[in-house]
Design a binder for these strands. Structure first.
Lengths: 214, 214
DNA sequence: AGCGGGGCGATGGTATGCCATATTCGCCTC
DNA sequence: GAGGCGAATATGGCATACCATCGCCCCGCT
């Protein structure tokens, strides 16, 4: 029926979810705007079924707020939402980095380094979207390196929101620099340092959020 | 988390999800057994669409393992899965209890007490399923009392697995007793004690899992 | 002008049916 | 007898269609 470029097989619903997710985290879909199944289906050239599936996925990721019997809307993040996200990450991020430092395989360390290099290059070049994506990749690979699938699963629930949060940051280079320190700690296998730096990293994020409100 | 005030409207898909979830956590559906959309639809007297939606939900909860293009199966938990779950809970549970102790409203404390009383009564009566359900309610209400919706959201991802884990416990009365201590700490607003007890509680769970393997 | 009721359109929920692919099993060949 | 090939079947992905409900708007009555 279409391309089929030797990919293992990707359901349309997965593609639809990815497209809409990108639009939301990049801000090209206004928070609060309606997501109407029929409209999305027409836009993307599919029927409502894969769109329904995709919207369920995005609701699970917290990017879409469902309104039973009426319509779904792009999630709006309040200051309180940002605080809650930080509070959760204060418990999970240090764990991610502590475990990653002690368990990472050489291959995982390499993948981590690669993500950081992409992030750093993009930050220097002033390419915000690429830097944010690479920064999110960095986080995700840390969680992979932590070697706990449940932890990864939980991270994926909030990963899109973390990425959105990254998008609110103005000083991308500062983020990349802190990631560099974290990378070094993970490389050295120093779990305690990694956990401490993760906490400090969150402090930076919190401060930035605070500042934005003023 | 259910309000269910006069049941304004419940989609079939939600009902299907609940039914199948109960069967899985109670063990009446064998881990590894196939979940065929058409069969479930026929069993429950609906079409495949609500079954599809329900299976997506259960996949998101980690109770069902999807096999694209073939079939979905009831998740099988390995010893490693149990370890991973404990590792995650060691980061989150103390946070749940610490926050609950400092933020709970009087109403939330009451709901918590009620859940514990149900658990304790069922444990004394030797009613395993009821005790497990009440124990899971206890945990969930603690997370509600923690006043962080993101935390609740993450908890719900693993809540069904936590409940399954509870089902593996033999000494339900011991669990209820530890919950009682936690309840007291939350009542007293002693966040540190609550967090410490939560860690100890997990130690009990880990020890029980260890013992089962022997 | 304000208010209440009825109807119509918008929209999500569900059913049915077709299609593509993976799996299975038997038969044929060596 | 073993291995592989092919057809039949099992099964999930998707499209189309119908229905129920919720809002909104307009009209008529007061």
């Amino acid at each position: 029926m279409s391309s089929e470029l030797s990919a293992p097989f990707e359901p349309e619903s997965v593609r639809v979810a990815r497209v809409v997710r990108e639009q939301i985290v990049d801000g090209s879909r206004e928070p609060g705007s309606r997501l109407v199944e029929r409209d999305l289906a027409a836009e993307l050239g599919v029927s409502r079924i894969p769109v329904r599936d995709a919207l369920r996925t995005l609701v699970a990721e917290g990017l879409v707020t469902p309104r039973p019997r009426t319509w779904a809307v792009v999630r709006e993040f309040s200051d309180a939402d940002v605080d809650h996200l930080h509070e959760v990450r204060e418990a999970t991020d240090p764990l991610h980095f502590r475990l990653a430092a002690t368990r990472r395989s050489p291959e995982q360390l390499e993948a981590l380094t690669e993500a950081w290099q992409r992030e750093d290059a993009a930050a220097r070049a002033g390419d915000g979207p690429t830097a944010r994506r690479a920064g999110a990749d960095f986080h995700e690979r840390v969680v992979e390196a932590a070697g706990n699938p449940v932890l990864l699963e939980l991270h994926l629930v909030i990963a899109s929101r973390v990425r959105w949060l990254l998008g609110q940051h103005l000083d991308l280079q500062a983020i990349a620099d802190e990631h560099r320190e974290l990378l070094d700690a993970v490389r050295d296998g120093d779990g305690e340092a990694a956990a401490r730096l993760a906490g400090a990293h969150l402090g930076t994020s919190r401060a930035a959020a605070q500042e934005r409100r003023a």
